[in-house]
Amino acid sequence: MTTALHCVFLNGTVGVGKTSTADALADLLTIRGVPNAVIDLDWLRFAWPAPTGDPFNRRLELANLSAVIPNFRAAGTRLLVLAGVIEGTLQREEYEQVLDQLLVVRLEAGPATVQHRLRRRHDPLDPSLDWHLDRAIELQAILSSADVDDAVLHTDGRDPRSVAAAVLGVLKQQWPTSHIQMAAGDEITQ
């Protein structure tokens, strides 16, 4: 019998802290002895040019994700942390077809926080900065109205480690009977 691969999808607009939180969550899981892996989904779809009708290369991302899941499973991964964007119900269903157990946690921050993070991340002369600033506002509205998340966590004024600790709390609440060992004597199973 194959053990289910639990997947936590950190959803959110650009600059909200998905990748930083994913990295911090991996550290916390490793400390607790939970076999884990992290995928920033941007890298699974990073190709140019994007096909007509698929400007963000979602089909490529899903195909690549499908291809690597068996490798993580074979390596003993129990919890896969994904950082990306799910804009609606149809997209969530596409991920659910590829993944065993999916928990979507949306990270949210106010516009000032997101703008500050994006300006720190991009060179002021980088022409993509304006696109990212505009996309952050647009995407935040899309994600708020899509309502595809199992939980929403606010990242304003919080460092990635404290947000990751909050994600662990969501895991314990949402998967109270999971096979994932969170800490000695503290187990969540499904």
Rank of each mutant, 00 (worst) to 15 (best):
L107G: 07
N64A: 14
Q140M: 08
A146P: 04
Q97C: 14
V148K: 05
N57I: 01
A112C: 13
R117L: 10
L129K: 05
T113K: 07
D130H: 15
E108P: 09
R121Y: 13
L60F: 03
R120S: 12
S145M: 06
D100F: 08
L143P: 04
V163E: 00
V105E: 02
I137P: 14
S162H: 10
N71C: 11
R135S: 02
I142R: 05
P124S: 12
Q97N: 09
D156A: 03
H122Q: 07
T113A: 09
D100C: 09
A166P: 08
Q140I: 12
G110Y: 03
I142G: 06
V114A: 00
A63I: 14
R161Y: 11
Y95D: 01
V163L: 02
N57P: 09
A165N: 07
V148Q: 00
R135E: 00
L60N: 05
Q101T: 08
R120P: 10
D100G: 10
R121H: 15
S144P: 14
R119E: 15
E94M: 12
A166L: 06
N64W: 15
G84M: 01
G110K: 02
R106C: 06
Q115S: 15
W131A: 11
L103W: 07
D150F: 02
R106D: 14
G157C: 04
H132W: 06
L79K: 07
L90W: 13
A74I: 11
D126H: 14
A75W: 03
R158A: 09
R78S: 02
Q115A: 07
V68I: 13
I137F: 09
L79M: 13
V105A: 06
F72A: 03
T89G: 11
S144A: 14
A74G: 12
I69L: 11
D100T: 09
S162Y: 08
V114M: 12
E87N: 15
T113C: 04
P124F: 00
P160K: 03
V167F: 00
D134W: 04
N64K: 08
V114G: 04
D150T: 07
I137A: 11
D130V: 11
V81S: 07
G76M: 01
T89I: 13
Q101S: 12
L82A: 01
